[in-house]
Design a protein around this nucleic acid. Structure first.
Lengths: 255, 255
DNA sequence: CGGAAACTATGTACACCATACATAGAAACG
DNA sequence: CGTTTCTATGTATGGTGTACATAGTTTCCG
């Protein structure tokens, strides 16, 4: 018990803000504002104009309150961002209809990918610690179920879930196909193919031999055909190889 | 040619800033400042006090110049951040001594992981497009070599490289073991185990069954022993499974 | 029922930020 | 030598997060 009281105060504040509903038996005037309302307004602003437009004043204006009112419910902008990211993540998909664990994981990854596509600003919210919000944990829980069912141990499932989360997150961040989304209006969205050409012109083949070869092959092959799949090739190939590896691992373990 | 001139101007500016040395035959007084000097100063500041301390005024002070002098060499802070991130990444490791492609990839991942460990602020630099800096491309090139040697096609190698980059990047971002690094001074660094306990107390076992089970198993197992490996378990397990998958893929392809 | 306490929303103020713009001076060209 | 051109600087503007003091309202306690 004593150990639990010595926790990082920042984390504590995050947790209470993310989880704790305010108990209603308080003294002063009932607050018309709330963390939820503020977070929802923040999501609305970020959806509309991106994360760099998300200022306290903008949120307050959105709600019709003064800027400083927000600070009665939210200790800082950083914490608010954390809450907004959790709210913006929404509920995870239901994977119970998936035929096997592979399909479940692919569905999950596709949903997360789509979510980052719809709200690219979530990728810009700085992470200060592992996710502890209700929705973020729900996403994690939904992913852990098929992994555990596939025969992984607790630690392995956790590592695999971290791996998959990181892959989707990182790929979404890096992927140029999303660049047009989180670039406000001062830039034309550029595609992967554009970048390939530009870079190919730039680099020295002797210093970057592998990169040159890959680019040459890519240019020769022409633009990649869009698949009807939920996962684009750049993400799907890696996820599939990873699932292959997990499967053989689980198989050799159970044998 | 005409197509290449219609590129995103933002990307162009990034590229010239990242690659182009200034040609010296100009009219006015020789500039004592340069993009390189500024970027190096930015790296120094970020190393010392984190990304949120990195202001133009701070960099100028570091160099002993006025704030606005920087804008003679750098069009905006965003672009400067991009250059600083590339400079901060440094040169990739040499993988020629690796016994096989697995070891090469693991070495690469370990080096990148260590790099993010040493300069956690790089993870906070917003990504506006796929990496095009000299160092970032060098890292990519170094990774592509063993992947191509393992028998992957150009597109597959590219996807695999993206996967691995995303994994290391994302895991480094999420991993709580790094939290103490990029939290300045208002928070005690918290460990993974701490978080597990806190979260375990918080969540409803019925709403989060898999998560509850995993946490219970983890608490029962006690703290994870540190391995002498370059990769921590949370990252290494996933990378190994992925490499397994790549290997079988390459094997079935060549057969 | 009436004071007192507690809480909300607000207004003001401050330090800091990126950067647009004008200016002064120095170097190199014609 | 004069003109052009570029560097470094100073000033100024509109923005930011948030500390702090204040006014007003609601609930509790005596």
């Amino acid at each position: 018990m004593t150990t639990r009281d010595s926790k990082d105060p920042d984390l504590r504040r995050s947790l209470t803000l993310l989880w704790e509903g305010r108990q209603p038996g308080r003294r002063g005037p009932r607050s018309r504002l709330s963390v939820e309302l503020i977070a929802q307004a923040a999501v609305r602003v970020a959806d509309a104009d991106g994360l760099e437009a998300l200022s306290m004043q903008r949120i307050a204006a959105e709600l019709g309150y003064s800027t400083m009112s927000l600070y009665n419910h939210v200790p800082s902008k950083d914490l608010l961002l954390e809450v907004a990211a959790d709210v913006g993540a929404g509920a995870p998909p239901d994977l119970d209809d998936a035929a096997d664990f592979r399909e479940a994981v692919r569905l999950w990854a596709g949903a997360l990918w789509a979510g980052f596509h719809r709200r690219p600003w979530i990728l810009r919210v700085p992470l200060d610690h592992a996710p502890v919000g209700p929705n973020q944990l729900a996403w994690l829980d939904r992913l852990l179920r098929p992994l555990l069912a596939a025969g992984l141990s607790g630690g392995e499932a956790r590592a695999a879930a971290l791996h998959l989360t990181a892959v989707v997150r990182g790929t979404a961040q890096i992927s140029t196909s999303m660049a047009g989304q989180y670039k406000h209006d001062d830039g034309i969205p550029h595609t992967d193919a554009d970048l390939t050409h530009v870079v190919a012109d730039l680099i020295d083949p002797e210093a970057y031999p592998a990169l040159t070869a890959v680019h040459a092959a890519e240019i020769a092959a022409g633009p990649r055909k869009a698949s009807g799949d939920a996962l684009p090739f750049e993400l799907g190939f890696g996820v599939d190889r990873f699932l292959d590896g997990l499967e053989t691992w689980a198989a050799t373990k159970s044998r």
